[in-house]
Amino acid sequence: MDSLVVLVLCLSCLLLLSLWRQSSGRGKLPPGPTPLPVIGNILQIGIKDISKSLTNLSKVYGPVFTLYFGLKPIVVLHGYEAVKEALIDLGEEFSGRGIFPLAERANRGFGIVFSNGKKWKEIRRFSLMTLRNFGMGKRSIEDRVQEEARCLVEELRKTKASPCDPTFILGCAPCNVICSIIFHKRFDYKDQQFLNLMEKLNENIKILSSPWIQICNNFSPIIDYFPGTHNKLLKNVAFMKSYILEKVKEHQESMDMNNPQDFIDCFLMKMEKEKHNQPSEFTIESLENTAVDLFGAGTETTSTTLRYALLLLLKHPEVTAKVQEEIERVIGRNRSPCMQDRSHMPYTDAVVHEVQRYIDLLPTSLPHAVTCDIKFRNYLIPKGTTILISLTSVLHDNKEFPNPEMFDPHHFLDEGGNFKKSKYFMPFSAGKRICVGEALAGMELFLFLTSILQNFNLKSLVDPKNLDTTPVVNGFASVPPFYQLCFIPV
């Protein structure tokens, strides 16, 4: 009986604490739906499609509103004006990374994606500088992407125009580009180590996009005490870190300090320079996690976009025909596509942009946080508050993009057929937390897609009208449904 009384008292205290925290903070924060004790607004949000729920709530509470995930307040920004004001106009104040408990377990605050403060700034600055020195957006990395595009075309030829699921092959190409940047090595598509790495990356994007992960991140005790797919994700990350550590040891034994070959060499050189400046942010643990982040951000996002792009091109054969006509006119058949071609191919450029806009790969991006107490639109948001960005509300804005739910390359073309930029184009987020590999991803999408369409016609196994382009999961990332196609050599 005594234990029951204690339990009831504990629960009562928890409920009172929950109510007090919510009521004391709500006077400062933007308005929002009334949260339930302990669980907050979790029942009012469709976990399978958070973005749709945010759109519905914005119609009631406006472009800036507050939700509670458990006891934790989260300020939501919906629509271009609110997102721009926060991420661009007040970029420094909104540059923090929001709480992501599962990532905390995986990387302990290291790396480039989930770190904060001085650690994040130094690692991000170093990573950007190193990638630029190796030619991100310049010639040397373009050579690597072109080489991988040629290998991709050869792998597709091996399908002999038979029906195939493109998931694996389209994942190999961007993964190999990242391998060449980090390890100075590309792998054969049949290499077992490479296959294991690909498998872990593919599993992780599916797990991260599941409703279960949303629950884990908002009720963090689940991570330590409950079984579930989150444990598989943590094991996959541990596998990748151990693999990278092996490569780091190989580099330490063979590195030429006067001739760095890749990202690992550059990081080890930085560690050597910083060894007298303790404590340094440049450690082996930081290198492991930064490399894992580059793999995660640079492989599955690009391969998922490529997979979605081919599905949309199957669905819209008239678009595919126009792209192939432009390829034939500008590039021809006797040389590989290059980035200089893009400025002469406005329709193809528009298609690449429209694919990214339409699929809305990361509907709410990753959570941000404010780095200080900030007054925002007459609300006071306390330091450390998590900020949720609705990228969907920007990419699918119906004023900027008429009929935003329709796939239409003319969203990025003017009346004369010239490519038209849009400030609403934010597939990689915006501001200080914009994806480090934005330029690389854009290069890969253009070169891989043009190389495929230069060499193959795409054949659907069903009537294009019957192809479903609805994402199968739409949590962290929008993942396309399973499909097969035939690559018919031109």
Score class of each variant (00 low, 15 high):
F134I: 15
S180E: 09
K118R: 14
N176G: 02
I222M: 14
D165Y: 01
M198Y: 11
S115Q: 12
G431R: 09
F94S: 05
Y80Q: 06
V38N: 02
G384A: 04
I182A: 02
A173V: 04
Y189H: 04
Y379F: 12
P317V: 06
A321R: 12
I264R: 04
G91H: 12
R150C: 08
V83M: 06
V355C: 14
S53W: 06
Q356K: 04
G384R: 04
F407Y: 04
Q146P: 01
F219G: 03
E203L: 07
N41C: 03
F263W: 06
G431M: 07
Q44R: 08
D49W: 01
K375V: 07
V8N: 00
G32A: 02
Y225Q: 06
A103D: 08
V60H: 10
E85M: 10
V462K: 14
T371N: 15
R139T: 13
L170R: 00
S478Q: 05
F407V: 01
A350L: 00
C338D: 06
E199Q: 09
N204M: 07
M136P: 11
Q214I: 09
S343L: 15
G91K: 07
P464A: 09
K241A: 03
N418A: 13
S51C: 10
P73L: 01
K399Q: 12
S51K: 11
T55G: 08
T229S: 15
Q146N: 09
I182M: 15
I223M: 06
F419P: 06
F456L: 02
P464E: 08
V177A: 03
I169T: 09
T364C: 15
T305N: 03
P37H: 02
K138E: 09
K275G: 12
F482M: 15
S23A: 10
F110I: 15
K28L: 13
M136D: 07
T290E: 03
L449M: 05
I207W: 08
N41R: 02
L413T: 03
P363E: 04
F482S: 13
N204L: 07
G384V: 00
R186V: 03
C175V: 10
K270E: 13
Q261I: 09
G417T: 04
L234A: 14
K249L: 11
N176D: 02
H410V: 09
P174F: 05
E328S: 14
K459E: 09
N455T: 07
V436R: 02
A106Y: 11
F295W: 11
P163L: 06
P30T: 01
E438P: 03
K273Q: 11
V292R: 12
R186L: 01
F425P: 05
V351R: 02
F126R: 03
Y243V: 14
L152I: 06
T167K: 10
V113R: 15
L195Q: 15
A297R: 14
D373Y: 01
D89V: 12
K119G: 13
Q214C: 12
V76W: 00
S280P: 10
R125I: 06
R357T: 01
Y68H: 09
F187R: 03
E326Y: 01
S51G: 13
K423Q: 12
M426G: 05
V323Y: 03
S12E: 01
P409A: 04
G431W: 05
L294V: 05
I207L: 10
N289C: 13
G135C: 11
I178V: 12
F482T: 14
